[in-house]
């Protein structure tokens, strides 16, 4: 008798427990949909980034309730990207559901014929913005650590080497501007730490070479090429090389000799009156400099944040 009663009680409590768990799971699901509503619709930038971070780490499934249809952390990150652009009335990229990949991708007018983009999440809540065709990471984004880092070698390989063969410079410039705008919004709206790297068009920007030393031969080659293009590489102060173009001035120099650093460290600087021209723009628009740079890429490649891009 006591045995039977005990069994009955335990069965009942199991049912209660089950019911409670279903309720919790459903509530969890409701909360999820509310957060997704926020991510999709809010006009508030703080709510937006909080929703994105919350969804990227969201445990939607429980042992009582699983949802067969789901989006991934990478999708929410991409959605955040798009919404932030929306809030600034900047609609450069189109969010598109890729049927074969069952995931969201970015399609960029002018680029979509050759490539599309999506995020790849790493194990420390960071996300790499990946060009699908090459698998190269154009930048690294971490919403929690409030940072974004441009990857110079991927930008060079994908935008300069690969796209320029198939696309016109204007479409590539469009993509460049989108990346710059996104990083700028992150900085202005949320105080992100931003490294635009070779996309930085400010005059104080110094594009550091991955190799500290630079052989004179490499500059000699630019000197000869410039002369063939009716331009002159001039001797600047402290062993620097200066190349004046129509709207900008490039200086290649050793920071040690210039008194800016204790150790030998060669850098490239690009100056222009409106501060709109970056090293990337030079590579995009000046064929002989691009050829020189790519021919000597082992010597000249621009350094990216070494903690992120190894």
């Amino acid at each position: 008798m006591a045995e039977k009663e005990k069994k009955l009680i335990s069965t009942k409590s199991r049912l209660v427990e089950f019911n409670e768990q279903i309720k919790l799971s459903l509530n969890n699901g409701i909360k999820f949909t509310e957060t997704l509503d926020i991510l999709m619709n809010t006009q508030d930038k703080v709510e937006l980034i909080d929703a994105a971070m919350s969804l990227m780490g969201y445990q939607l499934d429980t042992s009582y309730l699983t949802f067969p249809q789901k989006y991934s952390a990478a999708d929410y990150c991409l959605l955040f990207f798009n919404r932030l652009m929306d809030l600034h009335d900047n609609e450069t990229a189109i969010l598109h559901f890729s049927e074969p990949r069952k995931a969201l991708v970015h399609e960029i007018p002018g680029i979509n014929a050759v490539d599309s983009f999506s995020f790849k999440i790493d194990d420390s809540d960071g996300a790499y913005y990946v060009a699908q065709e090459s698998g190269a990471s154009l930048f690294y984004l971490n919403l929690r650590k409030r940072m974004i880092r441009i990857n110079s070698s991927a930008i060079t390989n994908v935008l300069i080497v690969s796209y320029l063969e198939k696309l016109d410079a204007k479409a590539i410039k469009h993509l460049e501007m989108m990346l710059i705008d996104f990083a700028t919004y992150l900085k202005e709206d949320y105080g992100f730490s931003v490294d635009l790297n070779l996309l930085d068009s400010g005059n104080p920007a110094r594009y550091e070479l991955a190799e500290d030393m630079l052989k004179r031969d490499v500059i000699d080659e630019l000197f000869v090429l410039a002369s063939e293009n009716e331009l002159m590489v001039e001797a600047g102060a402290n062993n620097s090389a200066v190349l004046k173009l129509a709207n900008s001035e490039i200086t290649i120099y050793d920071q040690k000799q210039m008194g800016e650093n204790d150790n030998e460290k060669w850098v490239i600087a690009v100056m222009d009156t409106t501060q709109e021209i970056s090293w990337f723009d030079i590579l995009l628009n000046e064929p002989f400099i691009r050829n020189w740079y790519l021919n000597n890429i082992s010597e000249l490649s621009i350094k990216s944040d070494p903690l992120i891009f190894k």
Binding site: R216, I219, D220, F223, M232, V233, E234, A235, A241
Partner: peptide
């Protein structure tokens, strides 16, 4: 030095 160019 002859000139203002690189490696004059």
């Amino acid at each position: 030095h002859f000139g203002n160019w690189w490696d004059r």
